[in-house]
């Protein structure tokens, strides 16, 4: 990727972050109830004196007009200060960094599940198109994309955790034992989607002229599949994989809730439920940033992997 394009992409990321932060900020202002009061009392019904509220309001600069508040926040955020979390009783940035490892482990574990399951299944069902195997795979993946993840998670928890007692059912910690169920839950939905895409991509390549040509020249099917078709078919799938990784980092919130997994998604939900708005703001920006950086990295690597793109630029 040329430098100019790189700069344009980074500029775009900055713009999106600006937009997202503005939207969340505005939403918080629109939110029903007194933010400051909730900051002190949380969701509990504690008596808070008006003087106390006013003091904190002035301290946070929340008595100023909206746009100044936003600029204040932005100025501090640019210096790496995302505010203080009342829920966690520590700076927002610390809480975000603390939750990051759990989310990364879970994302990588689900991604691993997805790759291990979907690539062989997708390739094999494309090669054996129309066979019983192909139909079974297509049927299962159809069910896999239609099952609500949170329900699947609860069912796994109930059957494998409670009935068969194979896995711990109490969440909250990060370990090999506790990661299997949430990673499988996320992995099943992703693998189902991905298997279909691998299958389609391989089928498409199998119909290309060069395959017909290679067959005509008497090359073995094995050689055609491994050396010609697969490298070509896998390329576009990398982008999709990057997108799913980005979605995992941000979108696994519901599954993290089901399993009590201490990651960023669950942090977002907790922060919203607790009305800890500095934290909400921080989590949303953080997830957006990670998502966009991953997409950027995927695009760059794509450029290196696909020789056609390299030549043009």
């Amino acid at each position: 990727m040329a430098n100019k394009q790189m700069m344009a992409r980074i500029g775009q990321i900055a713009l999106v972050l600006l937009g997202i932060s503005f939207i969340t900020f505005a939403l918080v202002m629109l939110a029903p109830g007194d933010v400051v009061r909730q900051m002190i009392a949380g969701n509990e019904d504690i008596m808070v004196s008006q003087a106390e509220i006013d003091a904190l309001r002035a301290e946070l600069g929340l008595d100023k007009p909206f746009i100044f508040q936003y600029l204040d926040w932005l100025g501090r955020a640019l210096q790496g200060n995302l505010g203080f979390s009342y829920m966690a009783k520590k700076p927002v940035i610390e809480e975000l960094l603390g939750r990051l490892p759990a989310t990364i482990y879970l994302s990588l574990a689900s991604l691993l599940f997805m790759i291990v399951v979907s690539i062989p299944l997708g390739i094999y069902s494309a090669v054996k198109r129309g066979s019983v195997f192909d139909y079974v795979v297509r049927g299962l993946t159809f069910l896999g994309v239609s099952v609500p993840g949170f329900w699947l998670g609860l069912m796994l928890l109930w059957i494998l955790g409670l009935k068969l007692d194979l896995f711990p059912i109490v969440g909250g910690t990060v370990s090999l034992e506790t990661i299997i169920l949430p990673a499988t839950t996320l992995g099943i939905a992703m693998a189902s989607k991905y298997t279909r895409q691998v299958r389609t991509a391989v089928l498409e390549e199998l119909h290309q002229d060069y395959v017909v040509g290679a067959r005509a020249r008497g090359m073995s099917e094995k050689h055609i599949l491994w050396k010609e078709v697969l490298p070509n078919a896998m390329l576009p799938l990398i982008t999709l994989m990057g997108l799913s990784l980005g979605n995992l980092l941000g979108g696994a919130a519901v599954i993290e809730m089901v399993f009590g997994w201490p990651g960023l998604g669950r942090l977002a939900i907790e922060a919203i439920t607790y009305r800890d708005f500095q934290l909400v703001q921080g989590v949303v920006i953080w997830i957006a940033l990670m998502y966009m950086i991953i997409n950027l990295v995927v695009d760059i690597s794509y450029n290196y992997l696909d020789p056609r793109l390299r030549k043009v630029r």
């Binding site: 939110a31 941000g250 919130a253």
Partner: peptide, 16 residues
């Protein structure tokens, strides 16, 4: 360029 579900959660959650 943003994971939709997290924004949806934020919007729905903040609005009540």
């Amino acid at each position: 360029s943003f994971p939709g579900m997290i924004l949806a959660i934020a919007v729905a959650g903040i609005l009540g």
